[in-house]
Design a protein around this nucleic acid. Structure first.
Lengths: 342, 342
DNA sequence: ATGAAAGCGCTAACAA
DNA sequence: TTGTTAGCGCTTTCAT
């Protein structure tokens, strides 16, 4: 701060207040300042006070990058989410972030677009920051990226799915079982002619394959499938029902790969005066809060998104702090919430 | 990698591959590896090839924290968003993150809960990482936090609002004007008896005050206001309409502080067989995609959320790279989208 | 075009 | 309990 030390201040100095400045003012060594801030219990009351004073006077904010570099602990967790369906994972990310913050960790967000080209860059960016943990939405198939992740040695938690070969930790549920359960549920309610409206992603794929498979097993007519690709919109859901009804009016139950698509189907049904659930049953997936008090309230396969985030935070933090995670693979399950639409 | 150099490997060495390792294998100096990676045009073809080879062979991933510390450029942008209304800002954050990624920047996410206690910690965490820029959802009122931000010298962009006294850059729109515009719009459509359903936040406050003010100016009866606090749910929107109708049935237009609340009002209206828009007009705020193809389609005050994120990225990156931003304050405006509900 | 030296700001390791 | 020393892995600066 004072211009009386022309030798010390090198040209590289960024100008910000550093431990050294604080130490000088408090009349202690830099390491004492570090201790006072990070392990106050190891410093005497007197020095603690002097350091706090100096910090307040200078407005010192520790440079966490420097600290991380030195301690090999970044207090950073990276989350990779597919951007196009951000909304489904909102609750997970929110609970993840809250739990992390409370433990003094920061969240770094990366959006994979499921593009291999981007994935390499994203991974470099993620690993390059040396996060203490990585949160993955979905599971990572064998690939170069997977190898790099493995090689990095950073704790990883894969989520929203199950696999016998996780990279590291795993918090998810079985998409296959969901497909079976929904088919069984429809059958138990007396529905017979199924259709499905689904987006293009691997997990929806597994739900829907199981759904179709179970229908076939039970001797039901073939399931009509509308794949909406990446258009996960309400509008596209409406169109999808229109398409289904163009082919045949003999459909009485539709399983959608997301609540939003299901809302679209419901909307189109209303536009056509189809009675819900007598004329048509509709099942969504995800369990976003909005659907439970609409008219008609949408039945859905409910996922405990918040729990996934909270558990992931717990696991990642445990591992970051060198503790062992007892149950590194967890099936959080799902539940079918029956409401007006079925 | 080879255990033949017991002196060099100090106990602090984290074990990861470093520039030094790569340099040794490529037969060049560490700085050349750095140049080959960050400024390939300054390195001869031959050395470039050798470095790339060595990088591939070792699986080297540069430690960005070390680089940042050395260069005082973190390539990190921090975004602070209020967690409870994540969804409204989703589109903004998504476009922000995409634009940042394309320019080689990472996004760090902080969730303020509007709690003063948390704000201090959040700010320390944010500034401590020395991001190249900070994205704020909303504007920051005079406070200790604001002073710290100012003192940090980090480029800041405040968003989703307008103020004559921004910290630095500003990308938003006038909530006051929106309130006036909605009142005028209702009046022009012949509505006379207004109500409003709103959450507790300062921006909603300004929209609603202006709405009430204009109604009074025009000699209309007092506006009935339901404040739902922090319960920004569809269900609460339904309850709100019920409350309004308990007091008086003579309400013909409701302005809601979010699309979600408006959806709730619409739902309750349907439950009561109130005709939309003849019996009741409903206006939302935000313009989330879902509402435009529902039945009835919700009229709303549309905000270009994506543009806010993209512009913010552009400004922040420009400033991070030492360029000057010509128009550091931008009003992105709003537009009333008339649909079935009005 | 390439390299040597010297830090960036912090903390681990060791010493007192 | 406090301090000294030596890095963490990278890039700036200055030479060649």
């Amino acid at each position: 701060m004072q211009p009386n030390d022309p030798i010390k201040r090198s040209r590289r100095n960024s100008g910000a207040v550093t431990v050294r400045d604080v130490a000088k003012i408090a009349g202690v060594a830099p390491i004492t300042v570090s201790r006072a801030i990070n392990h106050p219990e190891t410093v005497s009351a007197e020095l603690l006070r002097r350091v706090h004073d100096a910090v307040a006077r200078t407005g010192y904010v520790p440079n966490l990058m420097a600290g991380s570099l030195s301690s090999s602990k970044s207090k950073l967790i990276a989350a990779v989410i597919p951007s196009t369906v951000f909304s489904v994972f909102t609750e997970t990310i929110e609970s993840l972030n809250n739990a992390l913050f409370d433990a003094g960790y920061q969240l770094m967000l990366g959006q994979s677009q499921y593009l291999a080209s981007r994935e390499e860059a994203l991974l470099g960016a993620v690993i390059g920051r040396r996060p203490d943990g990585i949160f993955l939405t979905g599971i990572m198939p064998p690939s170069n990226a997977r190898k790099r992740l493995l090689a990095s040695g950073i704790p990883v938690v894969e989520t929203w799915d199950l696999t016998p070969t996780p990279i590291d930790m795993l918090i998810g549920f079985s998409h296959h079982k969901i497909g079976l359960a929904v088919a069984d549920y429809f059958i138990s309610k007396g529905y017979q002619r199924f259709a499905s409206v689904r987006a293009s992603d691997e997990r929806a794929d597994r739900r829907m394959s199981a759904f179709v498979e179970r229908a076939a097993q039970q001797g039901l007519p073939p399931v009509q499938v509308i794949n909406v690709g990446s258009e996960r919109t309400l509008t596209r859901g409406r169109q999808a029902l229109a398409e289904i009804l163009e082919n045949t009016t003999r459909v009485d139950a539709v399983f959608c790969s997301s609540d939003l698509l299901a809302l679209g189907v419901l909307t189109e049904a209303r536009a056509r005066n189809i009675r819900i659930p007598d004329g048509l049953a509709v099942m969504g997936f995800g369990g976003v809060p909005i659907i439970e008090n609409m008219i008609p309230a949408l039945s859905t396969v409910q996922i405990n998104s918040g729990k996934i985030g909270a558990l992931a935070a717990e696991y990642l933090i445990a591992r970051a702090e060198g503790r062992v995670v007892q149950m590194p693979t967890v099936d959080v399950g799902f539940s079918i919430h029956e409401r007006d639409s079925t």
